[in-house]
Write a protein that binds this DNA or RNA. Structure first.
Lengths: 127, 127
DNA sequence: TTGACATGAAACCATTTGGTTTCGTATAAT
DNA sequence: ATTATACGAAACCAAATGGTTTCATGTCAA
């Protein structure tokens, strides 16, 4: 199959802050486990497990070089996230448009943009 | 406080598939808990807990209407995700980066460019 | 050859997570 | 006034998660 059966998906993989930091580190350059774990207040083994989860999600690739295993970022699976996100973009673009129209308009009687943006809890004004 | 102290962050909130489905449902329209839970093979209480987590992350807002609590999508916190993602976009936006990184590397120990280029699946060109 | 280094696997542990059932309370309907 | 509906809180539970320490193996260096 072209689609590897992933034990961990991208959403779950990036849920952990440590793993997001690891990805960022690997964005700079390919690195072996020991160097990576040097950046974290936990054991090398713990970092190694995070790397396994990232690898399961396809977000890092390993390469053996002598006695070390170097990991590098593989950003492609993040496209799934991007696609997912794009569905919701209209929701906040909508809100930005509301604000934009207010700012560009001279009409002060068209209502308060903040209530339109739902930044004000309706319950505050109703009860 | 204008900034809600979030017990759950966005990354963790969207890690669960059920919660992502809930968000999608609420994208259509504001809905009460019972209706939402009707779409899932679990108890209303379980869904209610998912809604609490989404609310903690700021992704849904509640509104009391009579004896029901209606939930609606609040997409704005997803902007944090978008910002995070944007950092990684350069990695897939230009597929030549793969080759570029090889050319710029001083790696003496192997890692030929062809194996690196296998990362690009020819069948992916339609995606 | 011997010793040091790099790493993953395994066993273990505490906490978190995702679910359940039960119960109390507020609101709506008869 | 009584009953039914909508909901969250609480107590509970199994499994997953994120960490640890220990051990075995492969590789490099002296």
């Amino acid at each position: 199959m072209s689609v590897p059966s992933q034990k961990h998906d991208v959403f779950q993989a990036i849920a952990d802050p440590t793993r997001r930091q690891v990805l960022k580190l690997l964005g700079e350059q390919e690195l072996p486990v020991t160097v990576i774990s040097g950046h974290f207040p936990m054991s090398r083994t713990a970092v190694s497990k995070h790397l396994r989860i990232l690898a399961d999600a396809g977000l890092v690739k390993e390469r053996k070089v002598g006695r070390e295993t170097r990991y590098r970022l593989e950003a492609e699976p993040l496209m799934e996230l991007k696609r997912w996100l794009s569905y919701y973009e209209r929701y906040w673009e909508n809100k930005l448009n509301v604000l934009k129209r207010f700012v560009e308009s001279d009409d002060e009687e068209g209502g308060n943009p903040f209530s339109a943006l739902e930044l004000i809890d309706p319950k505050d004004t109703n009860k």
